[in-house]
Amino acid sequence: MRDADIERKPPWRRRAFPYVLILPGLIYIAVTTLVPLVYSFWTSLTFNRATSVQPPHFNGVRNYVDVLTDSNFWNAVKVTAIYTGATVVSEMILGTAIALLLIKLTRGRKLVRLLLIIPFSVPPVVIGLMYLLIMDRSYGILNYLLSVVGIGPVSWLSSPDVALWSVIGVDLWQWTPFVIISAVAALESMPGDVIDAASIDGASSMQMVRWVVLPLIKPVLLVVALTRALTSLKVFDVIFVLTNGGPGSATETLSYMVYVDAFQRFDFGRGAAVSWLLILIAMVVAIPMVRSVLRSDVA
């Protein structure tokens, strides 16, 4: 449509025209996001159990009370917190440190980036199956390598003390390259004159990293940390393949608890309640990080 045609339209039609253009997108978001959210919230307020002869009916906040007084829920909160904290902190530190080393590469930089893309581009289920073989107690290559140096076999996925950290190790292998690539991109976009000025002023390598480089790439690192925190909070697929939440409940996260309640016990009301509590926890984690990102962008 030409600009002249738009100008000849009445003022109210000109004001409404941009909203008409985004209307299909708004309808799509409403159908695929808002409607399921509202329905799941309503389900969380109902007794909705497929194994019961009682029909679904409204029962208020009883599902939330049952969940919040269940020790299994608080164990899942603890497991999720350990998993999220360990993966995000380790990946951010390790990824940023490796990026600072890789930025000095003069040859093979493109090949290194290509190799780094592979881990987080592979589907999590495939990664889970791969590490299921690697960490097998009897036939896994990891225990074989340990036996070469005289260390006995380790029950990587069947020991309550080791299983969660084994899953965390898989996450580190998969997502640390994502942090590395993001940090390298941020480092390459830094203004060169600031680095040159710091060098002229006699700043050491550590001082330059601490007072110049890290503040400049802080907004990017905060966004990456926020992304990783949210994806770690809802981790399910790798745990489903590797441990099924076990042994016992050693690796049962909140997302896996939703799956157990809704699709193994067929208690859809309780499963929806756990999922909404997970959403609230994600908001508690995300809001301060989003504020930090906004403040860093303004600064």
Rank of each mutant, 00 (worst) to 15 (best):
P55K: 09
Y28Q: 05
I134Q: 00
P24N: 02
V53G: 08
I29V: 12
A50V: 13
L116E: 01
Q174T: 01
I181C: 00
R113Q: 14
T227R: 09
T253P: 04
I141H: 07
P124N: 03
D193C: 07
R14I: 01
W211K: 08
L221G: 10
V284E: 10
M257L: 15
M257N: 09
T96N: 07
I93S: 09
P18D: 01
W74Q: 06
A286F: 05
V88G: 00
T96D: 13
W74N: 06
R14Y: 07
L115F: 15
Y259A: 02
S292D: 12
L187M: 08
V285A: 02
V167T: 00
M257K: 14
S138P: 02
Y144V: 07
A197N: 06
D193F: 11
P18H: 05
L114M: 14
M257T: 12
D136H: 10
S159M: 05
A163E: 00
L21F: 07
L187V: 06
L100M: 12
G202P: 05
V122L: 09
H57C: 07
R8P: 07
V35D: 04
I181K: 01
T243G: 01
V35R: 13
I118N: 00
P288N: 00
G245W: 06
I98W: 06
P55N: 14
V89P: 12
I29L: 14
I118L: 09
T253W: 05
V290I: 15
V220W: 03
Q264E: 14
N72V: 08
L105N: 06
L214M: 13
T176F: 01
F266L: 13
L34V: 15
V298W: 09
V179W: 01
R210H: 08
T106Y: 12
I200R: 04
L26T: 04
S189D: 11
L277I: 12
L21K: 01
I98L: 14
I127N: 10
T69M: 08
V293L: 04
M206C: 08
S249N: 11
L132D: 05
Y39L: 15
F41R: 11
A163Y: 02
G269Q: 02
P119R: 03
L34P: 13
V53S: 10
L94T: 03
V194S: 06
V112W: 09
R295V: 14
M1C: 10
W211H: 13
A225H: 08
W42H: 13
N75R: 11
I98S: 04
D5K: 11
I93H: 11
L226M: 10
R62Y: 12
V20N: 03
L294H: 04
L294E: 14
T43E: 14
Q264Y: 15
A16T: 07
D297N: 08
F73N: 03
P24L: 11
V67M: 05
T51D: 13
Y28A: 12
I118A: 03
Q174Y: 02
V149N: 00
D70Q: 05
S52G: 03
D161K: 11
G85H: 09
I287D: 04
R291V: 11
G108D: 07
E7Y: 14
T227H: 09
V125C: 13
I127W: 11
Y131I: 01
P288A: 02
